[in-house]
């Protein structure tokens, strides 16, 4: 395997970068979408069970099937990959954001309003920071999942390590088939671990000492 890697390390590194970039961008986008949706959902209590149902059901759609549905709509390339990865990435974050925001002690929110904070300020300074550890847990799950989904998204000729895995699978029995598949898979795992470690660090830096566990 080493000669295989040594031969094309530049390509591998570039694909890792692409893979990471796809995942990070999709997760960031997903986080914003999920928090906005959660804000909407938690402002109307009746929507909460509905949102939870959607996020569970959404996760049961096979990613291949979703890609199949997306291809005729958005064509081949990076865009369907981003759409698909973002779609899945939203779900765990949404679920946790709803749980997190809903779990903020109503007395604190009322206290904030009673002191003269506007609804937006109450959200940014009280609700969001308090729900943040829970949202962040969702973000970690989402990132792990997106690593896998991004690999599958390569089927739509999206960028990243998924291309290696598919090449390997397509050439079963061929000279480098195992190498392709292994490097692709291990690369994804390595990236997943690195990103997770990074998120843990981000979590420590962005969570107030007063609510850290």
């Amino acid at each position: 395997m080493w000669p295989f890697i040594a031969e094309r390390w530049q390509d591998i590194a570039y694909r890792m970068y692409q893979h990471t970039s796809l995942v990070v961008q999709s997760v960031v986008l997903a986080t914003i979408i999920a928090i906005l949706l959660a804000l909407l959902v938690t402002s109307r209590r009746s929507l909460v069970p509905f949102a939870n149902a959607i996020s569970s059901v959404g996760l049961t759609i096979p990613s291949f099937a979703l890609l199949g549905l997306l291809l005729p709509l958005v064509g081949i390339g990076a865009i369907p990959s981003v759409v698909a990865v973002t779609f899945y990435a939203v779900l765990p974050i949404l679920r946790n954001a709803v749980v997190g925001l809903d779990g903020v002690n109503p007395a604190l929110v009322e206290s904030a309003r009673g002191m003269g904070m506007s609804p937006l300020m109450t959200f940014l300074r009280v609700r969001l920071p308090l729900a943040w550890p829970v949202i962040l847990a969702g973000l970690r799950i989402s990132t792990q999942m997106s690593m896998g989904v991004a690999a599958i998204a390569a089927y739509a000729l999206g960028p990243g390590l998924g291309g290696y895995i598919f090449t390997g699978l397509a050439q079963v029995g061929g000279a480098n088939a195992i190498n392709y598949a292994l490097v692709g898979t291990l690369g994804v795992i390595l990236l997943a671990l690195l990103l997770d470690a990074l998120l843990v660090l981000v979590g420590r830096l962005t969570t107030s000492k007063g609510i850290r566990v």
Binding site: L108, S111, G114, M115, G116, S118, V126, P129, L130, G210
Partner: peptide, 19 residues
Amino acid sequence: DTLRRSIGYVIQGGSLFPH
């Protein structure tokens, strides 16, 4: 909000922002 900033509000347990 202007009104509320001119009225102190204290509730049970202090209701401090934990973060």
